Simulated assay, not measured.
Amino acid sequence: MGPRDTGRWARKETAAVVATVRTVLRQPGPERDSVVQSLKAAGAAIAAWALAGWWLQAPMALLAPWTALALVDATVYRSLRAGLRQLAVILLGTLTAAAALSLTRGDTLAAMALALPPLVLVGTYRRLGTQGIYGATTALFVITATSTSSAEIGHRLLETGIGAVIGIAVNAFVLPPVHLRNAGDQLLRLPRDTGRLLRDLAQGVKGEWTAEQALDWHDEARRVEETLRYVRDARRHAEESSRLNPGLRLRRARSAQPPPALDARWSAAVDHLRAVTRTLATLGQGDNPLRSPGNDFFADWARLAETLAVLCEREYEALARREPSAPYVLEPRAVPEEVRVAYEALDASFRGLSGTGAVPAGELLAETRQLLRALVSEVPREVGR
């Protein structure tokens, strides 16, 4: 990565951070939820240390805040499940370390060589998730303490139990995370970001664009694709939020979840949008053997892209106005007249091309046609109103 690429990356990341901070301050959503969860995790760790280290004077109080910090998870269900796993893994690590110290007569290095390999291997078991590594780290704590007495082992379990109880309790009863709205929040970003990118593309292709600008467009398309993954993650979190969560009782109306059909539609749209930006990025390269389709073709393509951006903006506005508890209703929608006219003009422009310029033009026409089909196939009923 050269200095220019590094500078471009730094500018984009800085802009993304600033945008995230503004979102946190202006409106509720996943960003604000992340801030709340982070503060809760820090508070749980402090409370666990205050109880185990300051009040009880536990000999290895570090285990309590360490455990509490790890157990303030994305959902209450995950916290409870992770807590049970972690207690089991830490018990295994403690007993294995005690056995290794006993067999090696307190030799720290030999005990590590005996205990760590099997514990690290057990930690890779996929059903243990991220808690698997805690067996080996707990064993390190116990071995370096060089004590195998039942009282010391009991202290390790007590300290871990204190952290687990505090972490789970804080997550469950202090602003318990309810992700029922998050899938809809993330879905709302897809038409918004797609519309913005289409407008940027339409404005850019009307003149001369650089290879760096084309790469920026392609990066933005990949960011939109990441948002689609966030929608799926949020839906999974929403399902878990319905389990063992007292916070649901505080909500009078539960947020409706977007149907998977919307995911499929936007997945197709994002795929074709990314293909469009990839073709433009290829055309922007200096060593590209293909000729540009020309300004007339790109003028017609820009017109079509602007009409598609309007479709995205209308859907964004409709989804933003929808009541959280209102169900998502899908129905087919006809192609708007202005979109049809713009597409026919682009198709006529393509038919007038010849030579190597027709190759990228054909790719752009095909991918844009598929993008159009994805955007108008099935949409929430509110969009058409």
Rank of each mutant, 00 (worst) to 15 (best):
Val76Met: 10
Tyr125Asn: 03
Arg85Cys: 11
Leu128Ala: 11
Ala68Gly: 09
Tyr125Phe: 13
Ser150Pro: 09
Arg81Pro: 02
Ile133Leu: 14
Val122Pro: 03
Ala68Pro: 12
Ala111Pro: 03
Thr138Cys: 08
Val122Asn: 03
Ala70Phe: 08
Leu56Tyr: 08
Ala139Asp: 09
Ala136Phe: 00
Leu63Val: 09
Ala48Glu: 06
Val89Pro: 07
Ala100Lys: 11
Gly106Leu: 09
Arg126Val: 14
Ala48Ile: 03
Trp66Met: 14
Ile153Phe: 04
Ala100Glu: 13
Leu92Phe: 04
Ser79Thr: 10
Ile133Met: 14
Gly132His: 04
Gly123Glu: 06
Ala145Val: 00
Thr146Asn: 15
Thr108Val: 15
Met60Thr: 12
Thr137Glu: 03
Thr148Pro: 05
Trp66Gly: 06
Gly93Asn: 08
Trp49Glu: 12
Thr124Lys: 08
Thr130Gln: 14
Ile90His: 04
Trp55Thr: 02
Gly132Ile: 06
Thr104Phe: 02
Gln57Leu: 07
Thr96Gly: 05
Gly123Cys: 08
Leu91His: 05
Ala52Gln: 02
Arg81Asn: 12
Gln86Pro: 05
Gln57Pro: 00
Ala61Phe: 13
Ala110Val: 08
Leu114Pro: 09
Ala115Met: 05
Tyr134His: 14
Leu71Trp: 10
Thr130Asp: 15
Gln57Ile: 01
Val122Leu: 15
Gln57Gly: 07
Val76Gly: 06
Gln57Lys: 12
Ala64Leu: 03
Leu157Thr: 10
Tyr125Asp: 00
Ala99Pro: 01
Leu114Thr: 10
Leu109Cys: 00
Phe141Ile: 14
Pro117Gly: 04
Ala61Gly: 11
Val142Tyr: 04
Glu152Gly: 13
Ile143His: 02
Leu140Gln: 12
Trp54Glu: 07
Trp66Ser: 13
Leu121His: 11
Ala113Asp: 00
Val89Ser: 07
Val72Lys: 04
Ala151Ser: 15
Gln131Leu: 04
Ala110Asn: 10
Thr144Ala: 10
Ser147Trp: 00
Ala48Arg: 05
Leu109Phe: 04
Ile143Trp: 01
Leu157Asp: 05
Leu56Val: 10
Trp49Tyr: 15
Leu51Asn: 07
Leu69Asn: 06
Ile153His: 06
Gly135His: 02
Thr144Tyr: 13
Ala88Arg: 04
Phe141Ala: 13
Phe141Gln: 08
Leu119His: 01
